[in-house]
Write a protein that binds this DNA or RNA. Structure first.
Lengths: 126, 126
DNA sequence: GTTTATGCAAATTCTTTGCAATACT
DNA sequence: AGTATTGCAAAGAATTTGCATAAAC
């Protein structure tokens, strides 16, 4: 179900995504939010924001789910072909803007492509 | 730790990967093997095969971990830039041979790229 | 005979669900 | 008032770990 009511928790969570270009996980959010928030609630709100087309999600390196603000996506047409970067050192996840070309795969009908680049971020390189 | 002893379980598991081009998950293996096998054992053997450079792993659509036989990888230099395909219908995962071009990302040092294509396989299309 | 590998049970981690209480509009 | 949303506790699912036993070399 999509977002229908602007509750305090919905507003607070949305601010987190507006404030950073990084992707955020439920685990990160419940740990770092100033206001204590129930984890089930966070799971449900992020799901609804995704359904509403305000966030997109993807799976990071240890199977953890990450959400990020959609920059250039409309709710009908998600452009999820931009790559995501995750640092092998600190685990931080970032949306990149570079375009990825997906080759035509003969036998299958492709609906979505997820590209995850793993490496070291600037901070962890030093 | 890498594989050191050729036990019966190690041989049986390796056969599974030799017999199919598809990627396999622990969940799938413990459910479908003819011989009952402890799941912790399977987790540990697949980990060791990966360390030995015989398998590579990646995360599928629901955060589930998949393993597949390395075709053109050497143990020092994994070519994991080939895409993986997962069917949104039946969940089946396949290694594709098409090459993917990864764009240069200015600020980060990229060590590995994972490309997951989601769609419908031939069977599930009909 | 040493060392690696296995099986079992329990613990961890992430995510989902049921249901009664609460807050929007 | 009526319905969406929340909190809590419990359930699920995948993966990891500790430890005693068994199997490989």
């Amino acid at each position: 179900m999509a977002i229908k009511r602007q509750t305090a928790t919905v507003k607070l969570l949305w601010e987190q995504f507006e404030e950073s270009r990084d992707a955020l996980s439920v685990v990160y959010l419940v740990k770092h939010l100033k206001v204590a928030m129930n984890k089930s609630t966070v799971y449900r709100i992020l799901d609804r924001m995704e359904e509403s087309g305000k966030l997109h999600s993807f799976i990071g390196k240890n199977g953890l789910k990450w959400y990020a603000k959609c920059q250039d996506c409309s709710s009908e047409n998600h452009i999820d072909i931009h790559p995501h970067f995750q640092c092998n050192g600190c685990g931080k996840v970032e949306c990149l803007t570079e375009e990825i070309k997906i080759p035509k795969i003969s036998k299958h009908q492709i609906q979505l492509a997820q590209v995850l680049l793993l490496g070291k971020c600037e901070t962890c390189l030093n």
